[in-house]
Amino acid sequence: MEIYLKYFLVGLTIAMPVGAITVEMTKQGLKNGFIHGWAVGLGGMTIDLTLIIAMYLGFASFLSLPFIQMPLWLVGAAFLAYLGYDSIKNADKDITPADEKTQKSFWSTYRNGLLVAVSPGNLIFWVSVFGAVLSDSYSSNNTGNFSIAACGVISGILIHDIGLLSVVSVTRTVMSRRMIQMVSVIAGILLIGFSLYFIYEFALGIWNYIQ
Rank of each mutant, 00 (worst) to 15 (best):
I68C: 04
K6R: 14
W38I: 10
M55A: 08
L63Q: 02
G58I: 04
V153D: 00
G44M: 06
Q28T: 05
G188V: 10
Q103N: 11
E24D: 07
S140M: 14
I199P: 00
L80V: 01
I210G: 04
V174M: 11
P97K: 11
S61F: 02
F198R: 00
Y200W: 14
F202L: 14
S61Y: 02
S108H: 12
G58C: 02
W107L: 15
L12T: 12
I3G: 04
M179T: 11
L83H: 01
T102I: 07
F34C: 03
G58S: 01
V183I: 14
T96R: 06
G144A: 12
S166P: 04
F79A: 03
D94T: 06
S155N: 04
Y56E: 01
T22K: 06
E2Q: 15
S64M: 05
N32P: 02
T22Q: 09
A203G: 08
L74Y: 00
I180A: 03
S176M: 09
Y85N: 02
V40T: 08
F8K: 06
P66I: 04
V185S: 10
S140C: 10
I186D: 02
L12W: 12
M55Q: 12
S87A: 13
L30K: 04
K31G: 06
I14Q: 09
S119R: 02
H160Q: 06
T173Q: 09
I180T: 10
L65Y: 05
L9V: 15
L74K: 00
T50N: 07
N145C: 01
N112R: 15
F62C: 02
I52H: 00
I52E: 00
S105W: 07
S166W: 07
M179K: 08
M16I: 15
I210N: 13
F106T: 08
W207N: 09
I47C: 06
K104W: 13
M25G: 02
V167M: 10
S87G: 10
G163L: 13
M25F: 01
I159N: 00
A150K: 11
K104F: 14
G11H: 10
G37Y: 01
I35L: 14
S87V: 11
R111L: 15
V170H: 06
V168T: 02
A187L: 04
R178V: 07
V23I: 14
Y82N: 03
G41C: 10
M175V: 03
W107R: 11
S184R: 09
D48Q: 01
A150F: 10
L114D: 10
F125K: 08
T143R: 12
I180H: 03
I47A: 07
L115A: 08
S184I: 06
F62M: 09
T109A: 13
A187I: 03
W126Q: 08
V18S: 10
L72K: 00
G41D: 06
N122Q: 11
N90Y: 09
